[in-house]
């Protein structure tokens, strides 16, 4: 968990996301290492789910392709074994509760520990349902990444008190919010979180461009998911140079934003 904090705290950090096994096993392993080498400070590795209802069409499509190939949870662990031969970048899984539940919470967390996967995000396990999982995660020293939204309101303090690793601010305002409005609202939430904890705060959801990466100036990190998956989708033969170029550009935007830090 300390690895995550060190990687993100006051670093103008960039968190990348990709789907494990997309577009295939070898390329997926290589792209994760490429992303780390390009300067991603932490990488979220998505474990595909049949019904990824918190994801947009790009990631949904990648999940379906990965599952159509018959990729299993064990395959994802094999992929992580391969990745860990080449990089020590902090890694967290992002998946839905059911694949983890079916594998067995304890068995899954123990596997994460042995592979040095530092944390996990499960968007469909809210505060109300975390108790069992959190206890085991703590035993294995794995971070459970809490999500906060612009609507969390009076739930914020309790969510923050259960946080470890980093806090993920979901910056979606639904269909109504303009970009600047979104940024201001998210910055307000980040500021209130920072009054409660020293754990790093990352903002994500729908960040795709250089200009957007410059927003959210109070956050320790931004998270980019769909844009990276789209690059992989658009360059089926070899996406490496495009991934590196994109990540370096986004890192540049973060550094331009937070020069004063």
């Amino acid at each position: 968990m300390n690895d995550i904090i060190q990687a993100l705290k006051h670093k103008n950090a960039f968190i990348g996301f990709t789907v494990a096994g997309y577009p295939d096993f070898e390329k997926s392993a290589k792209y994760i290492v490429d992303m780390a080498n390009a300067g991603a400070d932490l990488i979220e590795v998505g474990i595909a789910f049949s019904d990824p209802s918190a994801d947009g069409p790009t990631i949904m499509n990648a999940d379906q392709k990965v599952l159509a190939k018959g990729t299993t949870t064990e395959d994802v662990f094999r992929l992580m074994t391969e990745v860990r031969k080449h990089t020590n970048v902090p890694l967290v899984f992002l998946t839905y509760t059911n694949p983890v539940f079916k594998y067995g919470y304890e068995k899954f967390l123990s596997k994460m520990k042995s592979l040095n996967i530092q944390g996990i995000i499960m968007p469909d396990m809210p505060l109300e349902e975390q108790e069992v999982f959190l206890n085991i995660a703590q035993q294995y020293g794995r971070a459970f990444i809490q999500l906060v939204t612009l609507q969390s309101g009076n739930r914020l303090a309790k969510i923050v008190s259960h946080a470890s690793g980093f806090i993920y601010v979901v910056s979606s305002l639904g269909i109504t919010g303009s970009q600047n409005e979104l940024s201001n609202e998210a910055d307000k939430i980040v500021t209130s979180i920072k009054e409660l904890t020293d754990i790093p705060v990352a903002v994500g959801f729908g960040i795709t461009t250089y200009d957007q990466a410059k927003l959210f100036s109070s956050a320790d990190a931004i998270i980019v998911g769909s844009a990276l998956v789209r690059i992989i989708e658009e360059h089926p033969d070899d996406a490496t140079i495009y991934l590196i170029e994109f990540i370096q550009k986004m890192k540049g935007a973060r550094n331009a934003t937070n020069q004063n830090d």
């Binding site: 809210p126 109300e128 999500l147 939204t149 969390s152 309101g153 739930r155 979606s172």
Partner: peptide
């Protein structure tokens, strides 16, 4: 049973 939904929906 339970309430396994994203934080976004809990409110």
């Amino acid at each position: 049973g339970g309430q396994f939904v994203p934080e976004l929906l809990m409110p």
